[in-house]
Design a binder for these strands. Structure first.
Lengths: 213, 213
DNA sequence: GTTCTCGGTGTACAGACGTACACCGAAACT
DNA sequence: AGTTTCGGTGTACGTCTGTACACCGAGAAC
């Protein structure tokens, strides 16, 4: 059983990421020591440096990992083979797809999202910035998609961003709750219906909104 | 210059709270050591125990302190000597008052709110629970106030809570941004207008909402 | 005026921390 | 086949951690 060197390196790298994620549960990354992580992985402390130059860099890797799948998933939820006829039906379909994507995906990677929730505001400056950046990308992608809806002509660019911000914040708080639920079916169902109803309210209200008052 | 014993105790207690709040900037409470706090205050490490039995208990005290003024402030923003005539005007007035309360109060106690933002999800289990509890109180108080609006009759109890949840989450995210802005006037103004516009959108939409679809 | 209470002090210790350094052995390169 | 690369090891250090213990001195209680 010989193992190529890159394979082996990748394997322990993964082990470090997993160990950090596990040890992090219920405490911020900054409260984690290099030695704890190393012990959990089963390597000597100094070997950690072969993979990351600091706990902080490890955090950045975890942020990238967490967001990579989510963004493509959300974008996919908003693209249709045959888009619904009117704006109202389109909005409702988008909401349903997005919410469904969220409730199926987040519980599957809940440790990652608990990590994001914690580090978003409590992490080191660089980690916080990385999370903020990813969320801003999601927000902008959403705003562009909304702008493509025919009836959105009455909306100013500012109002589009403000609306997208409202929606992303709402989804974020639901994602956090889902992540904390640890996959409990009743909580997942409750969050799903709450999220759907909230987004319906906002978007149905938005349809009758006119930026020029 | 004699000082009564309770006065002196209260004074160092305050000094400990302030020191913790200051040392916390940019890092979670859990990453703080008892010795750091003691050094900042200018007392010997063991003297800390005369006031708090752990860093965690100190955290709970900070949570209480942070929320005490906010809740009464928000409630006050929703009570009128002479309430506006129609629902729409009432909603707009409530939004204006609440947003104004937020943007004047949060920057004045921004260190407390940065602390809350960090610890809400990254703190120890007991601190997290304390924050969650306070937010839930705010949410329920808001729901009861909305229910009193005459035109809210069409709203089911569930939908009221869902709406309140949406509003509080939006305000929370704006409070976080305000706290992080550190009082920079341009940011404060931008957040103020964003918040007002978002809440207008939601509440104006809500007026045409009917829980029975 | 004597005694008690209690916030704050100083010393002391065992353990965990980050990291520097020299080293090993097998995969990878030539 | 000989040499280089590099992930992982083991030791060793100075520093910081929480906390136990004995002690002090001034305000409070009697």
């Amino acid at each position: 059983m010989t193992e190529t060197r890159v394979e082996r390196k990748e394997r322990t790298r993964r082990a470090i990421l997993d160990a950090a994620l596990e040890l992090c549960e219920g405490q911020p990354l900054a409260a984690l020591s290099l030695r704890q992580v190393a012990k959990q992985v089963g390597i000597v402390p100094t070997a950690f440096y072969r993979h990351f130059e600091s706990i902080d860099q490890l955090g950045l890797a975890l942020v990238d990992e967490s967001f990579s799948s989510l963004r493509s998933l959300l974008k996919a939820a908003r693209t249709f083979d045959s888009p619904p006829a009117n704006d109202r039906a389109l909005f409702l379909a988008v909401v349903d797809n997005s919410v469904k994507a969220l409730v199926t995906h987040v519980p599957k990677a809940d440790r990652h999202y608990r990590f994001i929730a914690r580090e978003r505001l409590a992490g080191s400056a660089t980690v916080r910035e990385a999370v903020r950046h990813q969320l801003e990308l999601i927000e902008r992608e959403l705003a562009t998609d909304i702008a493509r809806v025919p009836g959105a002509g009455r909306w100013s660019g500012d109002d589009l961003l403000i609306l997208a911000n409202l929606l992303v914040n709402a989804m974020l708080s639901h994602a956090e709750e889902l992540a904390l639920a640890g996959g409990r079916a009743d909580v997942v169902r409750r969050v799903e219906s709450t999220a759907r109803r909230q987004l319906h309210m906002v978007l149905i209200g938005a349809l009758s909104w006119d930026s020029s008052r």
